[in-house]
């Protein structure tokens, strides 16, 4: 294990560099582009919904695939987040609920 932690796979490094380039294209490119042109109201209205629908599209199929264990965790996390507004606490509540289902099997 001690030798493994410094391992750098060339394909993984290339993937990381490409991800970094794509991310900076968003950070810097957005600023540059919007300095030149201003997007239409329709484009702005569509982009307004991107963050929420994106994360939802990641979460829902994972819950459908994972079944009761992650679903109960998700319910516990959502309820804790709405009432406590604390990310660490909400994740902990979800892990505990998920652990409960795991133990019962």
């Amino acid at each position: 294990m001690s030798a493994d932690i410094w391992h750098l796979d060339p394909w993984t490094v290339l993937a990381i560099v490409l991800m970094g380039a794509a991310t900076y294209a968003c950070r810097g490119g957005g600023y540059w582009l919007f300095r030149q042109i201003s997007p239409s109201p329709l484009v702005r209205a569509i982009l307004h919904y991107v963050p929420g629908t994106l994360f939802l599209s990641f979460v829902v199929p994972a819950l459908v695939h994972g079944g009761l264990q992650p679903t109960m965790g998700a319910v516990a996390t959502a309820i804790t987040m709405i009432y406590a507004r604390n990310l660490g606490l909400a994740i902990a509540a979800g892990v505990i609920a998920s652990y409960g289902v795991w133990m019962l099997r």
Partner: peptide
């Protein structure tokens, strides 16, 4: 995956971070 799907992870980074393009301006 191993090896990583280069197009998939690059596109994922781009789409998830599109919001940053709106924040800069």
């Amino acid at each position: 995956t191993h090896p990583p799907d280069l197009i998939a992870v690059t596109f994922a980074a781009f789409v998830v971070n599109l919001r940053l393009a709106l924040m800069g301006p």
